[in-house]
Design a protein around this nucleic acid. Structure first.
Length: 570
DNA sequence: GCCGTTTTCGGCCCGACTGTTTTCAGTCG
């Protein structure tokens, strides 16, 4: 019997006893027994088997017997009994910072949360923010905790790694004798999930730059170094790796370490077909003579290719491009579509959201609070809709060069209908439809549900169309092609939700949808001022999907957007 | 439940911190 396993059994026992509201002191006894076992030395097991543990502090009759039983039989009858009484998956929740037994019990009793998966779902429905004794901050912390746990598997959400990389890059820019520094790897390619921060540099004295790198105040651990490389851990155990190469190799190393592997492989094959050899060190002729390239543009040109932006380097057809595509950027964005306010589950008022958006240079904001059936999100009754309309009208009268547009994020019911009568839907200038309930439908039922929502004459866009939550929930299954075709036929845009837990629709499907004639919109899905800038992650996904400004509703000025939305109405 | 006896029951770890609530509960180290 491994003592770690034994200690874990007693720890679990203490946990379940507390859930069962046993006496605090008995709980403490078993928790203490767990610690005693974990810290025990050689010979403990023998003593335990023979039931001679009373000499140890805090081990009395009951604990001694339980430990003896466990070492003899491998079982704890009391624990087995409690495991039948409570779902064993409740134990997963203990690992989440900020969740103790009291809160776990409350979540279990009040919301039926019994695993990490159902906890993530409860957060997604905002049910924890609204639970007595909890709140938005605790919900946020729980979501962070869930992500943190999964971070041990190595993949993290893009925003977390990107935000960690920014201060590091600012710091590195001041490194002594630094000539050049670039992000590489999947972070440079803007992938939705990223493992680490990869940096490439070239410098007068590589040693000095490596010293500087490892002296970064944000590091938690140095993992290793040599003459040209160094690796360390940052907050949340995010690895940061630096590699230094000679200037003449820089463009080749930059391309190589940006990847992806499959893109690199395709480039090498292309080089070989031209009698060239491409490596991370250079591009060589058959006789070994290197071909100099001053930058990546020159490198791609040497292979007869237009410059391929890092986002597209996924070997998804980019080598067939005849010229560098125009990718959408922040500069093309005229308005923010899909924002929440205190009218439903947002944290800021309409006027706060609007003035922040105007301050950032946008020309309009489309407020889309939750609809009435989204009770968990404080969805708006028809009366509240009218109230919001008059508030928006009043604020708009005070604004110049900016407009607040009243939209709605209307729930798609199980039968595919939207949850307001047409008279109410007609009052909104922009209608987003989205699914928040009954995710677990069979694919053809879900397809029918979505098709009906798309056919609704008031629907302008389908928000977060697959409902996936990165690192915690797969999207629902449906027939993508049928949905894309219906969207094109009924003038319904598809959202690229910019929330980094969603980034939904997945960029991999954007070209498929576009080929069917679908338009898109990037939605920050902002529930607070801080999240308005998160729209940039959605733009990143649109770029990965090779979308240009004309593919997105956000590039439209407000008049054009309103006309586009209105044109299909009865 | 365990301990330590003034031998048969009274006492047992708490302060910082966070978030919710508005004076406190829960978690964590």
């Amino acid at each position: 019997m491994n003592k770690q396993e034994a200690a874990a059994a007693f720890r679990d026992l203490a946990f379940f006893l507390e859930l069962a509201e046993d006496t605090p002191l008995r709980i403490r006894t078993y928790a203490h027994a767990s610690k005693t076992i974990a810290q025990s030395v050689d010979g403990f097991e023998k003593q335990a088997m023979t039931g001679h543990l009373r000499h140890l502090a805090g081990i009395g009759k009951e604990a001694e017997e339980a430990i003896a039983t466990f070492y003899r039989t491998g079982q704890l009858p009391l624990l087995e009994e409690l495991r039948h009484r409570f779902p064993p998956t409740l134990l997963e929740l203990k690992a989440i910072p900020g969740l103790g037994v009291k809160r776990i019990k409350a979540l279990y009793d009040e919301l039926g949360v019994d695993s990490a998966v159902s906890l993530a779902q409860a957060c997604e429905h905002n049910r924890i923010a609204l639970l007595k004794g909890f709140g938005p901050k605790i919900q946020e912390n729980i979501l962070d905790g869930l992500e943190y746990i999964r971070s041990f598997q190595g993949l993290r959400l893009l925003n977390r790694v990107y935000e960690t990389s920014c201060p590091l890059r600012e710091y590195m820019a001041k490194a002594p004798g630094l000539w050049r520094l670039d992000l590489t790897g999947s972070l440079r390619r803007g992938r939705e999930l990223v493992r680490n921060i990869d940096l490439l540099a070239c410098a007068e004295k590589p040693d000095a730059v490596i010293e500087w790198f490892l002296a970064y105040p944000g590091k938690t651990e140095v993992r290793g170094r040599d003459a040209s490389r160094a690796s360390m851990l940052l907050e949340l155990a995010i690895p940061a790796d630096l590699r230094i190469v000679p200037p003449e190799e820089y463009p080749f190393a930059l391309a190589h370490f940006t990847g992806s592997n499959v893109h690199n492989q395709a480039l090498r094959t292309r080089a070989e077909a031209r009698g060239l050899k491409l490596t991370e060190h250079g591009l060589f002729q058959e006789n070994g003579t290197p071909l100099a390239c001053r930058d990546e543009v020159a490198l791609y040109a040497a292979l007869g290719l237009p410059y391929i932006p890092p986002e597209l380097r996924e070997n998804m057809g980019e080598l067939a491009l005849k010229r560098t595509p125009e990718l959408v950027s922040m500069r093309d964005f005229r308005g923010l579509i899909h924002c929440h306010t205190t009218y439903s589950d947002g944290l800021n008022s309409i006027v706060e959201m609007a003035s922040a958006a105007q301050g950032k240079g946008y020309h309009y904001i489309v407020i889309t609070d939750h609809s009435q059936s989204a009770v968990y999100a404080n969805g708006m009754t028809p009366a509240r809709v009218l109230e919001q309309r008059s508030e928006i009208d009043a604020i708009n009268r005070t604004l110049t060069d900016f407009q607040i547009i009243q939209g709605i994020e209307s729930d798609i019911r199980e039968d595919g209908s939207l949850d307001y009568e047409p008279e109410i839907l007609a009052k909104f200038e922009v209608v987003l439809a989205s699914i928040h309930t009954s995710h677990e439908m069979p694919a053809d039922a879900m397809t029918r549900r979505l098709l009906k929502a798309i056919q609704n004459p008031y629907t302008n866009a389908i928000a977060h169309p697959t409902g996936r939550l990165l690192l915690s929930r797969k999207g629902y299954s449906f027939n993508f092609d049928k949905v894309f075709q219906a969207c094109a036929a009924h003038r319904v845009a598809i959202e690229i939700n910019a929330n980094c837990r969603r980034l939904d629709l997945d960029w991999r499907y954007l070209q498929h949808a576009k080929s069917r004639g679908v338009k898109f919109m990037v939605g920050p899905d902002a529930h607070s001022l801080e999240r308005l800038d998160g729209v940039s992650y959605g733009i990143g996904m649109a770029r990965k999907g090779a979308l240009g400004p004309k593919d997105l509703l956000n590039s439209m000025e407000k008049e054009e957007l309103l006309a586009w939305c209105k044109a299909k109405r009865p």
